[in-house]
Design a protein around this nucleic acid. Structure first.
Length: 1020
RNA sequence: GCUGAAGUGGUGGAAUUGGUAGACACGUUGGACUUAAAAUCCAAUGGCCUGUAAGGCCGUGCGGGUUCAAGUCCCGCCUUCAGUACCA
């Protein structure tokens, strides 16, 4: 009987499904192991061969762990809410619920054909109300929590209220909005209910705030920072503009330090950790407060004097400033605002504070309007307006252009009391730090360039450093000069001293700043989780947990709007009756018992931030998961997925896990112990070359050589006798075509479908002609009777016709071949090109394996004692495969299987004692054929229940070694010697060998290096 | 610019702690079987030199170094890919 993979695979897939073979138990005496894949977005395009790569790897590991005696949880589900599903729905004009369902069905069909050992009884879908009930529930927990810096954890908001009642907020050290003001217990009791709610909102871990968001008009929604790539939306590549909107935000910044520290405790790839650390962007420095001078103090004549002069003249300077402060100028000059303003800046270099020669505010900075003088007003306003108009992308695109405007205002240097001019410039970002910088041109290149450009002073405060050409930013080699009490100090010491002095003055303090911003959590879209929120008097109220889920309402049109009104605004039944506790018609809104519901929906990352925990107990209606389930499974042991989620999903999921940990809901604060990023599988595009512009004629690759924009004939003829005399320019397409010539003919490369190409890169011309009308009458110039295509490795995409689907491969070669080949391509974590041609190798390996268990057409294994060689091959294989799986080196274990089967075939081995354990080794990789042969061997139970074979060293012990004999490090010949020999005996044997004498040509060797069991090197 | 990863035959890739570079495959060439094709099997296959063989020389991005011995370790470059980007 031949290897009928179609029949075998269909039968076993059915068997596994019907018998629940891979169902995990929540209660087992076995040790647990949780292997997770990043669940897919069910997009409309279906899977291509790149998608299952990680799933195959995790499946191999899961199956291996079962053989090793673990109770393995290996679930799968769908991330079915969010932009991808909705965009597809919009493109096809259907309701997202319908397209999502269809896409899931298609995905499932494709996945099932590959033979994964998923426990489908635990499937989750983020768009399913039974699932998003718990997404809403977590949102409520976040709303009801605040972050206590003292305890460094999230606490219940009720605790905070209790503190406010007893002592106000003066002693509270919380992560909260910038604009909270101090109040006492008495104040608190006098606040209205609404005021109290407003204050509490500033502390909650999810809060409403008017924030400047990334608005994408084409997508009709706001986007998180990680959803924007190069200034345009990650999905669709649409422009993104900044816009002020009231939005829900997640106070992820509260967890910045813990998210950073946690990286040290998890086994994740270093590049991924680096990019998270980078994203969090911790920097140590200081906040410095500069008082804005209320009038126009005279800048020092002739630019700025030296520090010595200032120090000598300090009294004068101070008194002039004092005068300036006393004599309040007319209100007009202050823009009608007579308040004393303070600019706060964040700096990582407080040691360079004496090098400050100007300040720069972001154009959006709130003080800009207030401090700008009348003379500068027009110019400043024009600049602010111009900046606001520029999209994020434009601003990023021209980093090199220096622009800025002087506000006319001055601030007072905290130490020298010198006036410092205040500028605005778009190189200062409103979103980072305080949106203002103290510019130290001698120590920062951007400040330097700005100062040069506008002719501002560049005082040098570094000892022995030339700053005539560029700024000096090397902290390590810094010695401060011209800086009063900081003179002669190193960066480190000066920093500390400067901060101390600033604190003395009450004009600054040490501060750690993070780049990580709070995450916007509202989306103006239809296809997402509704918020469990309604509004009373404009203040958000949570719907009680017992009434969850709040299900998505039906709407007439689910398309987003360009202006930002959420589609849920179109729902007729979308109001909350707070007495009946149910969703009712909008017509009933009376603002006393029936209230409007939140119209935004949650972003795509909501559901994916905790789904891994829900798999542990996915059908629980009472709780998010039972305590027993979470305490048994605890965390994911192995998580496999793409690195593109580094600063999105993987950061948000860690954040929620830490929050749930603070709440005592999960037992560990990192959800995944080990993570592996699988590399991308690239397509190998096929390219044909059209001659000239409109001629429907194509040349084979051998005639093509690229140089600049021209393509012309290759100068590498196969038989060199005929063409030898011609040089490149003389050979050209038209010569070959036998037609009138020019020297060069340009060729147009055209992508064609990769399925028309055979394993030798030969084009099936008939298929191409039938593909599209324009090729119907095309002419092809062949080489050796074939048309050979050019090949190019690029991302798989429909437009390049290089997409390969797994279903097709399963149909032609079988799932086991697909699985083996995907692993055989190369290291899991590496990007690698797909070329279907190579699959022949693993497919014929499976046929050879099949033959090993058959004599002709009949299944036949013997109970004969295995030979020494048989055992050696088996145990060598056990050892290698086990090591490889533990190291996730799946490509090398496929080679090992091939070697084993080649050897056993050569040994004509058909001993059950060898062939049985061999099947278990292979079964994680090629489970269908393994099950089939296992059954033929007489087993009743699935091979997945079999124990992994145990390696026995004794079968590998050798008595002799084929020693490589080197002369001056170059291997010349090998010599088989007993391993019992000691160094001297080996040396004697080598020296006695005739070839050694040949090599030495009679000379005596200077030295002989003998490493027993390894090598001999004769140094001559 | 910064951070990270990687450069090995025609191709994908092996090579444990520094110890026989190119395992295992694909492709190619030749052969067997076949009316033919497919499938299968056998042989050769890094480059160069010597007619073949025996043998020799050169070879892991480039240039140095350490060592009896370097793809592997050290120093200095180059290139490619990925992430990030005015972060004060």
């Amino acid at each position: 009987m031949s290897y009928d993979f179609r029949d075998i695979e269909a039968r076993w897939q059915k068997y596994w499904a019907e018998n629940g073979t891979f169902r995990a138990e929540n209660d087992s005496a076995k040790p647990k192991y949780y292997v997770l894949d990043m669940f897919p977005y069910p997009s409309g395009a279906g899977l291509h061969v790149g998608h299952p790569l990680g799933y195959i790897a995790s499946d191999i590991y899961a199956r291996y762990k079962r053989h090793k005696g673990f109770n393995v949880l290996h679930p799968q589900g769908y991330d079915s809410f969010g932009l991808p599903a909705e965009q597809y729905a919009i493109q096809t004009g259907q309701h997202p619920a319908i397209t999502t369902k269809e896409n899931i069905a298609r995905y499932r069909e494709q996945l099932d054909k590959i033979g994964f050992s998923f426990d489908w009884s635990r499937e989750v879908r983020t768009s399913d109300p039974t699932f998003y009930k718990w997404t809403q529930w977590i949102f409520i927990q976040l709303f009801n929590s605040w972050y206590d810096n003292h305890e460094d954890k999230a606490r219940k908001i009720a605790d905070l209220e209790a503190i406010f009642v007893s002592e106000g907020n003066t002693k509270v050290n919380a992560v909260c909005d910038e604009d909270v003001t101090e109040f006492t217990a008495a104040d608190w009791s006098n606040f209205s209910s609404k005021e109290k709610q407003e204050i509490l909102l500033k502390y909650r871990l999810t809060y409403l705030a008017e924030t400047e968001v990334n608005w994408c008009p084409q997508l009709g929604t706001v986007l998180a920072n990680d959803e924007i790539v190069n200034g345009v939306s990650e999905r669709g590549g649409y422009p993104v503009v900044r816009k002020k909107m009231t939005q829900w935000s997640m106070r992820i910044s509260a967890y910045a330090q813990r998210l950073l520290d946690g990286l040290d405790t998890i086994d994740w790839p270093q590049p991924l950790k680096d990019s998270q650390a980078n994203w969090i962007g911790r920097s140590e420095g200081a906040i410095v407060k500069f008082r804005v001078l209320p009038s126009h103090p005279q800048p020092s004549p002739e630019g700025r004097g030296s520090n010595d002069e200032i120090l000598n003249d300090i009294d004068n300077v101070i008194s002039s400033i004092e005068n300036a402060l006393k004599v309040l100028p007319s209100g007009e000059d202050l823009g009608g605002d007579e308040k004393q303003h303070t600019i706060e800046v964040f700096t990582t270099r407080p040691d360079t504070i004496f090098g400050v020669s100007f300040m720069t505010l972001a154009p959006e900075h709130e003080l800009v309007q207030k401090i700008t003088t009348a003379q500068q007003k027009a110019e400043v306003e024009a600049y602010v307006e111009a900046t606001a108009k520029r999209s994020e992308r434009e601003r990023m695109a021209d980093v090199k252009t220096i622009s800025g405007v002087f506000t006319g205002a001055y601030a007072e240097h905290p130490f020298t009391k010198e006036p410092v001019p205040i500028w605005i410039g778009d190189y200062v970002l409103a979103g980072y730090g305080t949106g203002a910088v103290m510019a130290v041109p001698c120590g920062d290149q951007r400040d330097y360039d700005f100062a040069k450009h506008y002719g501002i002073d560049i005082p040098n405060i570094f000892e022995g450093v030339d700053i005539s050409e560029e700024a000096f930013a090397d902290k390590e080699n810094t010695i401060i000069a011209n800086s009063d009490f900081l003179n002669g100090l190193s960066y480190k010491k000066a920093t500390k001293r400067a901060i101390d002095e600033l604190e003395q003055l009450g004009q600054g303090k040490g501060k750690i700043n993070y780049r990580l911003r709070d995450a916007v959590f509202s989306r103006q879209r239809y296809w997402g989780e509704p918020f469990p929120v309604y509004y009373v008097d404009g203040m958000p109220q949570m719907i009680e947990e017992q009434y969850l889920p709040i299900e998505l309402p039906e709407v007439e049109k689910y398309l987003p709007t360009e202006t930002g009104e959420p589609p849920l605004g179109r729902a007729d039944i979308w109001a909350w009756d707070s007495t009946k506790n149910k969703v009712v018609s909008n017509d009933l809104i009376d603002h006393t018992t029936v209230f409007p519901l939140e119209l935004n929906t949650m972003p795509g990352w909501a559901g994916s931030s905790y789904y891994f925990n829900r798999y542990m107990d996915p059908h629980n209606d009472e709780e998010i998961f039972s305590a027993a389930a979470i305490n048994y499974w605890k965390e994911v042991d192995l998580y496999i997925g793409g690195s593109e989620h580094a600063t999105g999903h993987l950061l948000y999921a860690r954040f929620w896990q830490k929050f749930l940990f603070d709440c005592g809901i999960v037992p560990v604060d990192e959800f995944a112990k080990k993570l592996i990023n699988q590399g991308m599988i690239l397509g190998t595009s096929a390219i044909i070359y059209r001659i000239g512009g409109n001629i429907n004629k194509y040349v084979s690759k051998g005639y093509v050589k690229k140089e600049g924009d021209f393509f012309y004939a290759s100068d590498t003829p196969k038989d060199d006798s005929s063409n030898k005399s011609l040089d490149e320019d003389e050979i050209n397409i038209d010569n070959i075509a036998g037609e009138p010539t020019e020297n060069h003919t340009s060729l147009t490369p055209i992508h064609v479908d990769v399925s028309f190409i055979n394993s030798s890169d030969e084009l099936d011309i008939e298929k191409l002609k039938n593909w599209r009308p324009e090729f119907k009458n095309a002419e092809f110039i062949l080489e050796d009777g074939k048309y050979i295509v050019g090949r190019e490795v690029e991302k798989m995409s429909k437009s390049k016709y290089n997409v390969v689907n797994p279903d097709g491969i399963c149909e032609d070669y079988g799932a086991d071949s697909l699985r083996l080949y995907e692993m055989f391509l190369g290291p899991l974590e590496q990007a690698k090109p797909w070329n279907t041609a190579g699959i022949n190798g693993v497919h014929s390996f499976l046929k050879k394996l099949w033959k090993l268990y058959h004599n002709g057409d009949t299944f036949e294994v013997s109970d004969a004692e295995p030979t020494k060689d048989n055992l050696k091959t088996l145990h060598k294989t056990i050892k290698k495969v086990e090591e490889d799986i533990e190291n996730f080196s799946f490509n090398t274990s496929v080679s090992t299987f091939m070697i084993a089967v080649n050897e056993l075939t050569a040994q004509q081995c058909n001993a059950r004692a060898i062939l049985e354990p061999l099947l278990v080794l292979i079964s994680p990789y090629a489970p269908h054929i393994a099950e089939e042969l296992w059954q033929k061997l007489g087993h009743q139970e699935s091979i997945s229940t079999a124990a992994f074979p145990v390696f026995e060293e004794k079968h590998l012990i050798e008595s002799t070694k084929e020693y490589p004999i080197s002369f001056n490090g170059k291997m010349r010949f090998t010599l088989e010697l007993s391993l019992d020999l000691n160094k001297d005996e080996i040396e004697a044997a080598v020296m006695a060998h005739e070839k050694t004498q040949q090599q030495l040509e009679g000379r005596a060797p200077k030295k002989v290096i003998v490493v027993p069991g390894k090598i001999v090197n004769v140094v001559g």
